[in-house]
Design a protein around this nucleic acid. Structure first.
Length: 277
DNA sequence: CCGACAACCTGTGAGC
DNA sequence: TGCTCACAGGTTGTCG
């Protein structure tokens, strides 16, 4: 489900209800996520105060001060099918509701994740010490990512450019949908070997990644199947997809028929005219 | 170092 | 209606 814009939409929706609030209790109903939910997490979080809710790539970071005064971070990743949203105490948990964070203001943050590719982890002290965060590439919406950075990161990569921009070590948070959309906007064939993308085209691609992600965030993310934001509302960026899921339909720019192929077992959609080899 | 591929898991929709 | 198969927003680990 969630790529960076959906995670950011979730963060913005949750932040006002959790920042500076105290955790009454945490409930784990299923520890079997991509990695096991740490033993003792419930006890550790009881009485903790959330200072801020931030985001790194597709990770949500609940920056906490524990009851014993120690600082640490609750890391939540939504995987493919995860969703984090606000419920009240009268909402009974359903089959795939694996984790709750209950606050003293009556709000409950609930994680639902049918496929269980998500993560709920704890990192004491500095969150960025966590190996999953330490190795992650630059944030695409900051000055840490631009055409020069992308150009440098792609020089020794013979793999297709689409696969390389989806590599979280190169740039954080670009998933399948937005990789497809950004390559279309930049006019680059997704199969192009990354090292053959020129500096000028890396500039265009980095700009397209930023613009695509920003526009999706402004639209509240994309709603596919059942994704909804933290307030239960659907995003609407899916109505603005230019290539993703549009195979067989005419290109919005040139009316050529959008094509689909597979790269690393993922669907790639592109316009053969706007994204020439 | 790099790339290809399987693996983790459930739900859904298409086709028969 | 019901079965089987392919596929879905992500990431990691293994192997060559």
């Amino acid at each position: 489900m969630p790529e960076l814009p959906e995670v950011e939409t979730t963060r913005r929706g949750l932040a006002p209800s959790v920042e500076r609030q105290r955790v009454l209790r945490a409930v784990v109903r299923h520890r079997g996520l991509r990695q096991p939910v740490p033993r003792g997490l419930e006890r550790r979080l009881t009485g903790a105060q959330v200072r801020t809710l931030s985001r790194r790539g597709k990770y949500l970071l609940f920056d906490c001060v524990l009851e014993n005064g120690n600082a640490g971070t609750l890391l939540v990743h939504l995987g493919m099918s995860g969703r984090l949203w606000l419920v009240d105490a009268s909402t009974p948990p359903e089959k795939h509701d694996h984790f709750d964070l209950e606050f003293d203001n009556g709000c409950i943050v609930r994680l639902r994740d049918p496929r269980r590719f998500g993560l709920v982890l704890w990192q004491a002290g500095d969150a960025f010490q966590h190996p999953l965060l330490a190795a992650i590439g630059p944030e695409p919406l900051t000055a840490a990512f631009d055409g020069a950075v992308l150009h440098r990161a792609t020089r020794r990569r013979s793999a297709a450019i689409k696969l390389v921009i989806m590599d979280s070590h190169v740039v954080a948070g670009v998933g399948n949908i937005y990789a497809n959309e950004a390559l279309f906007s930049a006019g680059i064939d997704p199969r192009t070997p990354a090292q053959r993308v020129s500096r000028a085209r890396c500039d265009a691609l980095a700009a397209a990644i930023k613009q695509t992600l920003e526009r999706a965030i402004n639209a509240g993310g994309s709603t596919l199947r059942d994704y909804v934001g933290s307030d239960g509302r659907a995003g609407y960026f899916q109505d603005q997809f230019l290539v993703y899921g549009r195979a067989g339909q005419p290109c919005t720019r040139c009316a050529a028929i959008i094509r689909e192929l597979r790269q690393a077992q993922r669907a790639t959609c592109y316009c053969p005219v706007c994204q020439p080899r």
